[in-house]
Amino acid sequence: MAGTSSTNPAIRALQLELKKIHEEPVEGFRVSLPNEDNLFEWQVAIFGPPGTLYEGGYFKVAIMTFPQDYPYNPPKVKFLTKMWHPNVYENGDVCISILHPPVDDPQSGELPSERWNPTQNVRTILLSIISLLNEPNTYSPANVDASVMFRKWRDSVNGDKDKDYERIIKKQVNQTKEEAKKDGVIVPTTLEDYCISAAHLRRPSDDVQFDLDEDFIDDVGDEEDAIETIDSNDDSGQAES
């Protein structure tokens, strides 16, 4: 990836985030750039958490698209892999509070603190999506049919469990295993393997070479100080409310 300096705060923020994700990987997902000259589009794959219906799954996010004013507004996240889930639209768009713009909208039923704010980042988005796989929000579903089916599966008596939701998810998980084979990815299926640093799960081609110039390196401290300041102000605002 080119190390050309830029005064664009979004580019600088994304450079820093991508660098941190590759240096300090988190279990459960892998990140790459389809075009190393375009920091505003990331390719992401999420591994299904062990011990859940999604265990062994390899779910591709088609593109995570960032706005030009990131991190003041959230990216858009869309699954390429077919997902039957209460919080994923049929076209693959992910609908969760953290991806909603930071506006006060009483009609949405969401608290402002649940929406996006500049202290959030790619890591918190992806961890929220992984958590959402096993614990959907059924109060305001993007896929009503999936939400109804999930509730029937969740609330049915163990001895007479409604299997429709489970059957669909397991079918989709099996389909993703073929994709993993094509991509040469070994999907972790045990908690121990899942928690191993994601660096061991990436292929060599996923490694991004960072050629950051001295101006950017000098600005990293300024970026982190700014984030701490925003975080402090945000906490103060919440305390007052």
Rank of each mutant, 00 (worst) to 15 (best):
I98L: 04
H100Q: 15
P101H: 10
P101N: 15
P101Q: 14
D104N: 15
D105T: 14
D105W: 09
D105R: 10
D105S: 11
P106K: 12
Q107D: 15
Q107F: 12
Q107A: 14
S108P: 13
S108E: 12
S108C: 11
G109E: 12
G109C: 07
L111R: 05
L111K: 10
P112W: 11
P112F: 12
P112C: 03
S113F: 00
S113K: 11
E114K: 10
E114C: 01
R115Y: 01
W116T: 01
W116Q: 02
T119D: 10
T119Y: 03
T119S: 13
Q120H: 14
V122G: 01
V122I: 14
V122R: 01
V122D: 01
R123T: 09
T124V: 09
T124I: 08
I125Q: 00
L126R: 01
L126V: 13
L126K: 02
L127N: 01
S128A: 09
S128V: 05
I130W: 09
S131G: 11
S131D: 11
L132I: 03
L133E: 02
N134F: 08
N134I: 00
N134Y: 10
E135A: 08
E135D: 15
P136I: 08
N137I: 06
T138L: 11
Y139N: 05
Y139L: 11
S140K: 15
P141N: 08
A142L: 02
N143D: 15
V144D: 09
V144F: 05
V144H: 02
V144A: 12
D145K: 08
D145M: 04
D145P: 00
A146L: 10
S147W: 11
S147Q: 12
V148Y: 05
F150C: 06
F150G: 02
K152C: 09
W153S: 04
W153V: 11
D155W: 01
D155L: 10
S156R: 02
N158M: 07
N158W: 05
G159S: 10
G159T: 12
D160A: 04
K161M: 10
D162E: 14
D162T: 08
D162R: 07
K163W: 06
D164T: 04
D164M: 01
D164W: 00
Y165F: 13
E166T: 02
I168E: 13
I168N: 05
I169T: 03
K170V: 09
K171W: 09
